[in-house]
Design a protein around this nucleic acid. Structure first.
Lengths: 235, 235
DNA sequence: GGTATCATCATTGTCGACAATCCACGGATC
DNA sequence: GATCCGTGGATTGTCGACAATGATGATACC
């Protein structure tokens, strides 16, 4: 390799022009998460392509991705609809999340030889304190964000691209149903503790405790979600 | 419901006209698995659309699905290439498989109250005997098929749609790299035993043993794969 | 000889238009 | 009164063509 100016260009990041379909996908995903595209609603190709100012080609591509992610449901010759999650689906969602996050946490524990593990634990604990701050401040939005950060960092720290990608989809679904019932939050302190227990178990390298802590947290979260949903439909 | 002829029509299956894109997706996936579309090769939209006798629209849709599944790699404005798996990727693949299959097996154990569990165990054991038959007969292709059946049934029996779908993709990738190194099989009897141990642990309802058996099997399979790959490149 | 520049070509990205399909709504029929 | 057609409108599915982009090879220049 010649000694050109390229050597000093370490600070440059490779330009990655994102494809039109990717941009649209992201925006649609956002819309599904934040509820501006409510569950069950139909997404008209014509209307959306007009709104985005592109033709139906790239838009279709974006929607197909979301179908494959499981966020949209395609009825042939009928159209695409935002998927609705019933209680059974939500349970399944948490089964899958438990699978992915347990595996991620276990991998972190087992890679304890590397220096990534202490860093991961530090990050997770930082997120926990962020949660606690938000909880004491009564800022439910920040609490929810920190909650999501915790789980995202957990899976990212595992270093597994596949777990990471699976989890991404699952978290979008999670955020979707959380949005649907509009932040009914129980026991913020309990939630913080659940996360802290997970971080502690990882720090201790106690595999069984890690699995228990994650399993417990998922069950609690699921319980909160289902209870919240029932209260929502009742009231 | 009126007593029309519809009642006697139970044997009819709902006609589900599969979309063109789905058909193409399946065929491309097959091609990737069986090696007729080798890793690293570029998939030309024009050529393929001509081969399938459709326009580029549905074909692009099909390829986008495979990109999202992680089987194809998209280079913007360059084209789509069949993804190549190096040793690190294969390890990650098995991390993800372990995550999904462990969760599935655990779910089966914990749903032991239902009658699905005994049925699942019976199916798994049947697959094991099929493996043994193939092993003693020296039919490596049948052995591989039974192997895949085992894991597929394991995840299907869990009843989790999400685990199921994640696993589907992972198994295509698995089959892809198995095909790449052309069935270098070690110790068929050992393999049968590994599967049988998983089935037994599920039957016993011993969660720890289930996790150990799956973890062990995955490590062994990974070892076989990596070793096979190295031998392949060496010779 | 090595490098920069340019034309060429193949390939992907995007678009607008047409065909096929399906639901909704009236009207006719028994 | 309920059911069966047929039409109308809207939506998706598909196609062919054009624009944009990037690689390749030839040519001119230092």
């Amino acid at each position: 390799m010649p000694a050109t100016a390229a050597r000093s260009a370490g600070r440059f990041t490779p330009v990655n022009k994102e494809s039109t379909a990717s941009l649209i996908t992201r925006q649609l995903r956002e819309g599904i998460m934040d509820g501006s595209l409510p569950a069950g609603s139909q997404l008209s190709e014509a209307r959306l392509s007009a709104a985005f100012g592109v033709s139906r080609g790239p838009l279709r591509e974006a929607m197909q991705r979301l179908v494959q992610e499981g966020l949209l449901r395609a009825e042939p010759n009928r159209g695409l609809f935002v998927k609705e999650l019933d209680a059974e689906e939500i349970r399944d969602l948490y089964v899958a999340r438990t699978a992915v996050e347990s595996a991620a946490a276990l991998k972190i524990v087992r890679d304890a030889a590397t220096e990534t593990t202490p860093r991961a634990v530090a990050l997770l604990r930082a997120t926990c304190t962020a949660m606690r701050r938000a909880a004491t401040a009564g800022d439910l939005s920040a609490l929810s964000d920190a909650d999501f950060d915790f789980h995202e960092e957990l899976v990212t720290a595992s270093g597994s691209a596949r777990l990471r990608r699976m989890h991404e989809t699952l978290m979008v679904e999670t955020r979707m149903c959380l949005t649907a019932l509009e932040g009914t939050y129980y026991d913020p302190e309990d939630q913080v503790d659940e996360h802290r227990r997970i971080a502690d178990a990882i720090a201790d390298g106690d595999e069984a405790a890690v699995l228990r802590a994650i399993d417990d947290h998922m069950h609690q979260a699921l319980e909160r979600l289902i209870r919240g949903g029932e209260a929502d439909t009742r009231g």
